[in-house]
Every structure is written in C-alpha cells, then in structure tokens.
C-alpha cells in the first residue's frame, strides 16, 4: 500500500512514463502468495548491470549494513 502510493506519485503525475510493475493485483485468493509482475522499461547499460547485479533499476536494492535495525524495539521506543 505504502509502495503503491509512492509509485502513484512517481508515475501517475506523468502518464507517459513506463511503469515497471503491476500496481494492482486482481482476483486475489486467501492463503496464497503474490508478487507483482515486473514490466520491461528502462535498463542499465551492460557494465552498470554487472556492477549492480541486475539490469533493472527498479529491482536494484543495495544492502547497507543496517544490521541493528532488525533488533526488536524496546518498550520505550515503540
């Protein structure tokens, strides 16, 4: 939901833009897992793709060692 809102802002303001993924999944059933389809838009150059590990900018999600973010929050912080 949060992601969709962010994508709405990114793409719906520009109707010409290529949207690299399905935004609404229809006919969902209970007790099933769904990943939205990706659609082909922009791709990195070959050398950028090798450096990133993917040709797709929308799939590139680098890790930056936020190990501590996974610890449970303490009562005072929640």
């Amino acid at each position: 939901m949060i992601n969709n809102r962010r994508l709405d802002e990114m793409y719906y303001s520009n109707p010409e833009a290529c949207i690299p993924q399905e935004l609404v999944i229809e006919n969902v059933r209970l007790a099933a897992a769904y990943v939205p389809y990706q659609f082909m838009c922009e791709v990195f150059s070959p050398i950028e793709s090798l450096a990133a590990g993917t040709a797709f900018p929308e799939l590139f999600s680098p890790y930056n060692r936020k190990d501590n973010e996974n610890r449970p929050c303490r009562l005072s912080e929640c």
Binding site: L50, A51, A52, G53, T54, F56, L59, F60, S61, P62, Y63
Partner: peptide, 9 residues
C-alpha cells in the same frame, strides 16, 4: 553484493 542482488532478482 553482486550475489546478494541476484537473490533479490
């Protein structure tokens, strides 16, 4: 990092 990103893809 390259191998990690492949897992995401």
């Amino acid at each position: 990092k390259f191998l990690r990103e492949r897992e995401v893809v």
